[in-house]
Nucleic acid binder design. Structure first.
Length: 232
DNA sequence: CCAGACGTTGTT
DNA sequence: GTCTGG
DNA sequence: CCAGACGTTGTT
DNA sequence: GTCTGG
């Protein structure tokens, strides 16, 4: 499914610029929050990723740590999605990912983390009838058993920067193995998503999903017309 | 009753 | 759309 | 350089 | 997308 990362409730009427931070939904309140409730009760989804970053430290000089499976296989975040109609009548599908307390390993880096679902739990999460507290407690505890963590160069810490360089390990910039690994996972994800290529970051993902079409509002905001271009 | 909120922690 | 708070 | 504008005169 | 203004 094509969707933008930053959930827009179906009832939202103000300009998108006024939409609060809804790209993440706290697992603790996802069932009760007016922003997320509708989606939680009807529209669950999986967000496929090859990995993600957690940041550590103070603004300006943050360490960026990458979480991923040893093989860079896809893993899935617990997500919810919505459809919203813009004033122009355009139907926009958007989503949020659930976040929760960090696993023991992740807690050394950050105080929150995305809910990573175990493959055995995918179907259970996807059934929106599953709303029982105990079930949710179990589902919304991140599975991190097989995850590897390494520090990146921090190149991706700036939203101006895109591409495979973002996941290069610290102290190993320029090593062939790193970029080859990056190329591999990008190709794998693009193939999985059925699009021609995959560029890192939320903005690029939405653009990729849209096959280059500009997404509305602030969901694909770029800086001063400087846009990442999709390779042929 | 009704205006107003409704959210999270994303990098510079 | 629906709940909270004044 | 880059953030921010980019428009006109309506209705209750 | 492109121009203006700070």
């Amino acid at each position: 499914m094509n969707a933008c990362w930053w959930l827009i409730p179906s009832w939202w009427k103000q300009p998108l610029k006024k939409l609060p931070t809804t790209f993440n939904a706290r697992a603790e309140t996802i069932a009760s929050s007016r922003f997320f409730k509708d989606a939680f009760e009807r529209r669950r989804c999986l967000m496929p990723v090859t990995g993600w970053y957690e940041y550590q430290g103070k603004a300006g000089h943050k360490r960026s740590l990458c979480f991923h499976l040893p093989s860079w296989e896809l893993l899935a975040f617990a997500g919810i999605y919505e459809t919203w109609q813009s004033p122009d009548g355009e139907i926009v599908t958007s989503f949020a990912i659930a976040t929760t307390q960090p696993s023991q390993a992740a807690s050394k880096i950050h105080d929150r983390m995305p809910v990573v679902l175990h493959p055995d739990d995918y179907s259970e999460w996807l059934d929106p009838e599953n709303r029982e507290a105990a079930t949710l407690e179990r589902l919304l505890t991140p599975w991190d058993g097989a995850l590897e963590i390494y520090e990146t160069t921090g190149f991706g810490n700036s939203p101006h920067n895109e591409g495979p360089e973002c996941i290069e390990p610290a102290g190993a910039a320029g090593q062939v193995g790193c970029s080859r690994r990056a190329v591999t996972w990008r190709a794998a994800l693009a193939s999985c998503l059925g699009c021609k290529c995959f560029l890192a970051s939320a903005r690029s993902v939405s653009r990729c999903f849209e096959h280059g079409k500009q997404a509305p509002g602030n969901l694909s905001r770029t800086t001063s017309g400087r846009r990442a271009t999709l390779p042929a």
